[in-house]
Design a protein around this nucleic acid. Structure first.
Lengths: 246, 246
DNA sequence: TTGCAGAACTTGTCTGAACAAGTTGACCCC
DNA sequence: GGGGTCAACTTGTTCAGACAAGTTCTGCAA
């Protein structure tokens, strides 16, 4: 099922995780790995390219590859889905819908979801927590073609992402995240159980399908004492960008 | 000098930028591009893989590649260097060193810079601004082997990154960024000219050389009304990760 | 012992070929 | 017109080989 180069990438990741290759040590040469797994050098290169993009190993022409880090970053699924993320950490995701309403799309919705102004979109306000303790207020707007499936979900469903995949086969493939900080307002203070004006980490994001069609956009506010985000970047692979206001 | 696949990737990026291929339209097939540029299919695949990783185009087996976005994200240089970033936006980076001091490395410095505890490291506190308006307080710790070069730089140098490259040939290649929100303290309030307790966006980062050797680590606090960060992610390429406190 | 030159090694780039697997559109039948 | 089937097209995966370019280590000479 899975491609051979993915199997090899996984094998290498696991070897790094169990410290068969320690941080700072050198990986075997491509030709050695190719012989070991019984594949061509090109296939090995596909595998190590994946690890390089993840920042696990460093690579320079002429020198052996070096292990840079051991803990591997989350999968896209864990980033996209609050519930998947919680489960991976061994905690339980909780959550409930506070308000839910159909509205005609405003200018902002129209731009982000690539829909005509006035299209019936679904606004949902959710509070989500870890083991019952609230850490996140989520204000999401769903595109019209998926909103019926979302509205049918029970209010305390722990994983909306999983539910949409089961019901409709929808897969989230791309995401754009804009991160800044805001002061906590009155409603958020009550929902999260923190003082007003305390700092919150805000993540505004748009998620799209594999074809590039926007599914939802959301304004998420995290308690900054509970959650942070990390980004790994390199000279070859640059996902993070700094932006000015406006 | 530059590899053929990079030239082709650049050509495609430019073509997308000048809307020769518009958002939503389909790219030519690999075989067509290969014939057009006079290279093999493998070389074309290397080029389009780069654009896919940048999120410019989407890709599914069997279907033509689709243009997803036109504006391309910043280079790593622009992310790493405040001055480079400002220049790219047509604004002037300003800045000054508020305090600078050699200290023996504490536990935290030792872990992040992979140096023995007690090594003489250089602490620098800088305020940086756009066109004279302060937007960022930067607390940076430099490893011992680079600190002499840093200490020799004049206090109001607009681009430390550029200066270090010119003087020592040092190139920053990898970066790990942890992002959260904090309330503004008394010192930061005065330096940035904002009210105490107003929310600041904090980015803690470690930058390393191509070989994976840590050069510096820094605690940067941005006025959240002036600067935000954006991250582009996909199912194949996931640089962003969510973390809990501790 | 030190420093330099060169050999051996390793990754980067590129080719051309073949087959697998998924998508799209045209065509035909009902 | 509607629906289903199939062929043509397109991307994904893999192979084997070749050369370029950079690094590392060895051994020799000063």
């Amino acid at each position: 099922m899975t491609a051979r180069h993915e199997e090899i990438a996984d094998a290498l990741r696991r070897a790094i995780d169990r410290e068969e290759y320690t941080v700072g040590s050198r990986l075997p040469a491509e030709t050695e790995l190719a012989a070991h797994y019984g594949v061509s050098r090109g296939t090995v290169r596909q595998a190590v390219a994946a690890l390089t993009a993840e920042g696990l190993i460093g690579s320079r022409q002429g020198a052996r590859r070096v292990v840079l880090a051991s803990r591997r970053s989350q999968s896209f699924g864990e980033l996209r889905s609050f519930a998947q993320w919680a489960r991976a950490m061994g905690r339980e995701a909780t959550g409930r819908v506070v308000a839910q309403e159909f509205r005609p799309a405003a200018q902002e919705d129209s731009v982000r979801l690539q829909l005509p102004v006035g299209t019936r979109v679904l606004h949902v306000l959710r509070v989500r927590g870890l083991d019952g303790e609230p850490v996140l207020v989520e204000r999401t707007v769903y595109a019209d073609w998926i909103s019926a499936a979302v509205a049918a979900i029970e209010p305390d469903c722990p994983s909306v992402t999983q539910r949409l995949y089961d019901d409709t086969g929808l897969v989230f493939a791309y995401g754009e995240h804009v991160i800044d900080a805001v002061a906590c307002g009155a409603q958020d203070a009550e929902l999260l159980g923190v003082r007003r004006t305390s700092p919150l980490l805000r993540v505004r994001r748009v998620t799209t399908t594999r074809e590039g069609r926007p599914v939802e956009w959301s304004d998420d506010r995290y308690r900054s004492d509970a959650v942070s985000f990390s980004v790994h970047n390199s000279i070859d692979n640059n996902a993070l960008a700094r932006k000015t206001a406006e």
